[in-house]
């Protein structure tokens, strides 16, 4: 975890705890977010993802510790003006049902001081151009979510908070959704996305923050998390027919070998043992036909941290 307090952090949380009437939902959170990062908050329901987002949005105040967003305490009225630079898509977003999609968006646009032209552009961008004259009450879950993204994108925000943005979207919409977010990211926006599906956000995350029962159990890039988790790397070695067991015997006894059959066997090792093992395999000569290296899957990584008890 990055504890250095550098002045160019867009968001910084110092030792932040949050307690709701005796129940502590966040414990001593330290987190610094740099401009342009894409932070993914991962955790089960009730792990504290939404509570953390609400603190950063200034909707709630920390019970202890300091929250700073763009250099200011987001819960103070001095920070109201800088909400212009902020976009938020709540989990299961709710709108004024009686208004049409266009009316909803232009209401929010007025609050943000955006031009009406921008609304039309955004409605087309999220694919609601044709449905803009319909009442929001008649919208499907996917359409609401897209309208939600459109309002979050008003005024080209520097900071984007997306709370489980793709729940209830079909895979194609989901893809389209992330393309839109990528677009903002390209313009240099910082985004904080909460999610319980790791694999979906893997490619665009610069760092993961894994939350469990209000504690940060891990924080870092994907590589750092793999290193920290020390999950075994699996290899599948294919050899000439009938040679599998004899080749397997040529490994030292502390190498974990399994599933020996006629032409192949599996090895597992920790990441620092990987290269020596590969060198050994390549020294075995022509009898080895092929080998596959299978790094630990994301789901394994996730369940590793979920099973770890909070420190």
């Amino acid at each position: 975890m990055d504890d250095t307090r550098s002045s160019n952090n867009v968001i910084s949380l110092q030792d932040v705890s949050k307690t709701y009437s005796k129940e502590t939902v966040l414990h001593n959170i330290n987190l610094n977010i740099q401009p342009g990062e894409c932070i993914v908050l991962v955790g089960h329901n009730g792990a504290g993802k939404t509570s953390l987002l609400k603190l950063m949005l200034g909707l709630t105040k920390p019970s202890s510790g300091v929250v700073e967003v763009l250099g200011k305490n987001p819960a103070f009225s001095a920070a109201v003006a800088q909400r212009l630079a902020l976009g938020y898509l709540p989990e299961s977003v709710a709108f004024y049902e009686a208004m049409t999609g266009r009316e909803v968006l232009s209401f929010y646009a007025q609050l943000k001081g955006s031009k009406p032209k921008e609304c039309e552009k955004l409605l087309d961008l999220v694919g609601l151009g044709d449905a803009a004259r319909r009442r929001v009450g008649t919208y499907s879950k996917g359409m609401r979510q897209r309208l939600g993204l459109a309002q979050a994108m008003l005024g080209n925000p520097q900071l984007l908070f997306l709370d489980e943005p793709t729940t209830g979207l079909d895979p194609i919409l989901r893809q389209h959704f992330y393309e839109l977010i990528d677009g903002l990211q390209m313009q240099g926006a910082t985004s904080i996305i909460s999610s319980h599906a790791l694999s979906e956000v893997e490619a665009r995350a610069s760092r993961f923050v894994i939350l469990k029962a209000g504690y940060v159990v891990a924080c870092g890039t994907l590589d750092e998390l793999y290193q920290k988790a020390t999950l075994p790397i699996r290899m599948k070695v294919s050899v000439s027919p009938g040679e599998a067991s004899s080749v397997a015997q040529r490994f030292s006894s502390d190498v974990n070998i399994s599933e020996i059959n006629n032409q192949s066997f599996n090895l597992s090792c920790l990441s620092h043992e990987k290269m020596p093992l590969i060198r050994h395999i390549s020294s075995l000569g022509d009898v080895v036909h092929d080998m596959q290296i299978m790094p630990p899957k994301l789901d394994e990584l996730y369940s590793h941290f979920m099973n770890e008890s909070p420190s």
């Binding site: 009225s77 909400r83 938020y88 299961s92 709710a94 609050l111 943000k112």
Partner: peptide
């Protein structure tokens, strides 16, 4: 109750 207040208060409104 509907949840619209939460979104409204993330806008530059006091």
């Amino acid at each position: 109750e509907r949840g619209t207040m939460m979104l409204l208060l993330t806008y530059p409104v006091e």
